[in-house]
């Protein structure tokens, strides 16, 4: 790692520390009522207490599970459906109008429908997350396989490659950058919907815990839950960046 990169990391860490310190100062000075505005010290102790004595770790695991399974479902369905629609004019003609109708639906608005259809259980939570997170994947994959360099299709044609091989060796690999972008967007959507559905459906995830803590005026616990959600989002984005760098090595190869 280069010196300048280390310096940048140090600088951004410093900014974070300054913000936390200022927050602590504001809390200590009681700028807002401590009932609504806990300082970082109280949030930290709430986190610590919740993690070691309470059920925060288990709730985090539940939330992570919801998000990941929903996101995975969305990814599989999104990539498959996107590839089919992108590659087959027939499938596109049949499916696209329906999908265009479903796509602009706010995913959170589908929660009551999903509750009515699937009850308050896991399957409802996963269905809502998957429904909301599927679109970036679907659109990304569709766009990716449709924007294959025409010259490469000619190369494949000249080589007499069968359609199956063209899809596997040319269309899908060339859609990888779009698919990765879709994965990234989907993950964000999945996290948002995980929190929202957990709040609406109750259960033992972080969403419900945050809502309950809010109702009981335990502001430190609210902030602790939100902080964990933030960390999950950040970790997810970082892991995807690593995946992206690995998958797109060929772009900036030297």
């Amino acid at each position: 790692m280069s010196v300048s990169r280390l310096a940048w990391i140090a600088a951004s860490a410093l900014v974070f520390c300054v913000i936390v310190a200022a927050w602590q100062q504001a809390a200590d000075a009681r700028v807002f009522s401590p009932v609504f505005f806990p300082g970082p010290d109280r949030i930290w102790s709430a986190l610590h207490r919740g993690w070691t004595q309470g059920d925060l770790a288990a709730r985090t695991a539940t939330t992570l599970g919801h998000m990941l399974v929903g996101w995975l479902l969305a990814s599989v369905v999104g990539v498959a459906l996107g590839a089919v629609i992108g590659l087959s004019p027939l499938a596109s003609a049949y499916l696209k109008p329906t999908l265009e109708l479903l796509r602009p639906l706010p995913a959170s608005a589908t929660i009551p429908v999903a509750i009515a259809l699937l009850g308050l259980g896991e399957s409802m939570v996963l269905a809502v997350i998957a429904f909301g997170a599927v679109w970036p994947m679907l659109v990304g994959t569709m766009h990716g396989v449709q924007s294959v360099e025409p010259r490469l299709l000619e190369v494949a044609h000249a080589l007499g490659m069968p359609r199956r091989r063209v899809i596997r060796d040319i269309a899908l690999p060339s859609a990888i950058p779009d698919i990765l972008a879709g994965l990234r967007l989907s993950l964000t959507v999945a996290l948002i919907l995980t929190a929202v559905t957990e709040m609406m459906a109750g259960g033992d995830g972080l969403g419900a815990a945050i809502l309950d803590a809010g109702r009981l005026m335990r502001s430190a616990n609210v902030f602790a839950g939100v902080a964990i959600l933030g960390l999950i989002g950040m970790a997810g984005a970082m892991l995807l960046s690593i995946l992206e760098a690995r998958c797109l090595r060929w772009r900036l190869a030297s």
Partner: peptide
């Protein structure tokens, strides 16, 4: 009538004709 394996083509735009994700 159709492309055949014993007829090969070399295009001018090598940048587009190669698979960038393959070595």
């Amino acid at each position: 009538a159709a492309p055949r394996p014993d007829v090969a083509i070399v295009f001018q735009d090598y940048g587009k004709a190669l698979l960038p994700w393959r070595t």
